[in-house]
């Protein structure tokens, strides 16, 4: 049995009258790619927002890497080792690709105002290291040649990659990707798939929300299915695929 990285118990979330998450529990193990699927409006993104501290939850606990996770502020979640991307890409548009990734290093570095003003040796070395790491990560996700372009001028697929690079810059143990293949063509999706498999090889645990069922089934070690805010299945892809509830709720209602 592999180690548990994240364990969520009884997560609830409501928006006014809408119960977006009902008593959701799930367990993500170290080193796996964990898929989260479900029809539109099932609550997948909401669960991400709760896990990353962007939305306050209405009940439930999350344990991460053996410790209770403080969900009250996003930067603490990032510091604890969870990084994410957004369904509707959120980059710093007027910063270069490199600067976007450099921002991701913020949480692992420490130079303050005085270091910056005095350009102390420690600050200069840290700054150089931040820059080096950013360039490595741009290379890793395959957009090294775009380093000096403004983020908003990147092609769509490259923007998705850049968001992943920025997330990786925080040195996450768990990388949460919200529909990374949305809007991508077949070539871009294939390249993305390779990138995510590479992440697993490099020991990053991935939580993947995805609409592309083929991608999820081929990539994930385990898959959970959300429907109307409830988890209706959690297992290896083959078993989930055969689950009648899933077929009815998800595969039945979507075009796939």
């Amino acid at each position: 049995m592999t180690n548990v990285l994240l364990e969520a118990r009884g997560i609830g979330k409501r928006f006014g009258g809408v119960l977006a998450l009902k008593d959701v529990s799930l367990t993500i193990r170290c080193g796996e790619i964990y898929g989260l699927i479900g029809p539109n409006g099932a609550g997948k993104t909401t669960l991400f927002n709760v896990f990353t501290g962007l939305y306050p939850r209405d009940g439930g606990e999350v344990e991460f890497a053996g410790k209770p996770l403080q969900l009250d502020s996003p930067h603490r979640v990032a510091a604890a080792g969870i990084a994410r991307t957004f369904q509707n890409i959120r980059l710093f548009g007027n910063m270069t690709a490199r600067e976007n990734v450099m921002v991701g290093r913020h949480v692992r570095t420490r130079a303050g105002v005085f270091g910056a003003i005095l350009r102390s040796r420690a600050e200069r070395e840290e700054e150089a290291a931040i820059r080096r790491r950013a360039d490595e990560l741009l290379h890793y996700v395959g957009i090294a040649d775009r380093a000096d372009d403004l983020a908003r001028n990147l092609a769509y697929g490259d923007q998705r990659r850049l968001e992943i690079a920025r997330a990786l810059a925080t040195e996450p143990q768990l990388l949460a990707l919200d529909e990374p293949a949305a809007g991508m063509n077949a070539t871009e999706t294939a390249a993305l798939r390779e990138l995510i498999e590479g992440l697993r090889r490099d020991g990053v645990t991935v939580l993947l929300i995805e609409h592309d069922v083929k991608l999820v089934m081929g990539l994930c070690n385990r898959v959970a299915v959300l429907d109307h805010g409830e988890k209706i299945a959690e297992d290896v892809p083959e078993v989930v695929r055969a689950n009648p509830k899933v077929i009815e709720a998800y595969l039945g209602t979507s075009a796939h």
Binding site: T52, R84, F92, H106, A111
Partner: peptide, 20 residues
């Protein structure tokens, strides 16, 4: 590092938070 953080907040506060 601080200056970048300022610009990041200006550009997209939610993304800045999530980026740590």
């Amino acid at each position: 590092r601080i200056g970048r953080a300022w610009v990041a907040i200006r550009e997209d506060e939610v993304a800045a938070k999530a980026a740590g």
